[in-house]
Amino acid sequence: MGVGERRGGPGLGAGGDADFTTPAELIGNPARSAMLLALLDGRALPMSMLASEAGVAPSTASAHLSRLVSGGLLRVRGQGRHRYYELASAEVVAALEALARLAPPRPVRSLRAGTRAHALRLARTCYDHVAGHLGVALMQALLEAGAVVGGDGRHDPRVARLDRLSAPGRDLDYRLTDAGWELFSRLGVVVPSGRRRLTAYCVDWTEQRHHLAGAAGSALLTRFEELDWVRRGAKGAPRALGVTDAGRLGFAEHFAIDTEALAA
């Protein structure tokens, strides 16, 4: 194809001229660009999470998201009563990736906001168990070790019946095996008796995978805190969990999890 020739496609008028100003104005806003970049890895995220990524109030995030949807850069996926936002097409992904290669690093205007969002993605509490990158990695380690069985840890919205993002899972029945009980015993994890379900799970918004919940998930978090592997309130975020030096060693030894790689 020669320099003077163009492929037809969306955005090209009858004269072959594309109006770059509309998508450029949408992408160029700092809050909207932060939301778009948060979705660049293929996830669909709720408005609350995108507001946190952009460092804006929910009402402001709602207005930005409406513009991105009407401008064709985002689309909305509904699961139950909840709405999740994702990039609208492969063309949007390609455009953002091209701009990312051209753009200079974003200046950090609010170190507190930036580190808070990162800390929440890395490790946080979800009610009384571990979520975020660490929670998902922990679930995967338990599955690979045969300590937990009943699924593969992945959330596929195309086949999910009751499961939805950022919510307790209902489609699968995970179970703690003898190997799991042995692991708990070695770590000194005590699961209290009661009517609560032993091994439940949630669909984590961070990676759209499962993390362990239920009595087993709660007991693990309790033990991690007793061992001083994690501490609450990392980077000023009440729900964020900070991994200590002891935790980096402990997660590597007992679960083969490189927490420094998770934070990268």
Score class of each variant (00 low, 15 high):
186 R>C: 08
195 R>G: 07
192 P>Q: 09
130 V>G: 10
146 G>K: 07
152 D>C: 05
160 A>N: 14
192 P>V: 06
107 P>H: 04
85 Y>N: 03
98 A>D: 10
132 G>E: 08
176 L>A: 01
108 V>S: 11
185 S>T: 15
85 Y>D: 06
156 D>T: 08
93 V>L: 14
139 M>F: 14
190 V>F: 04
104 P>I: 02
147 A>D: 08
90 A>W: 01
119 A>N: 06
105 P>H: 10
170 R>G: 00
154 R>C: 04
166 S>C: 11
193 S>N: 10
94 A>W: 01
95 A>N: 11
154 R>A: 10
166 S>K: 06
148 V>Y: 06
137 A>Q: 12
150 G>M: 08
113 A>P: 00
156 D>V: 03
104 P>M: 10
188 G>H: 11
114 G>S: 14
146 G>F: 06
174 Y>Q: 05
177 T>M: 02
113 A>L: 15
163 D>H: 05
174 Y>P: 09
140 Q>Y: 02
97 E>T: 06
161 R>A: 14
155 H>E: 00
103 A>Y: 03
152 D>F: 12
114 G>R: 15
150 G>E: 07
154 R>H: 07
130 V>F: 01
202 C>R: 03
134 L>H: 09
95 A>E: 11
158 R>L: 09
114 G>N: 14
108 V>G: 04
148 V>T: 03
124 R>T: 02
135 G>Q: 06
175 R>L: 09
174 Y>R: 02
161 R>N: 04
138 L>P: 03
107 P>W: 00
175 R>T: 02
125 T>G: 01
183 L>S: 05
127 Y>P: 08
169 G>N: 00
143 L>K: 12
187 L>C: 08
87 L>S: 02
122 L>D: 07
194 G>F: 09
194 G>L: 12
183 L>K: 14
109 R>Y: 09
178 D>H: 09
120 L>H: 13
131 A>I: 14
172 L>T: 01
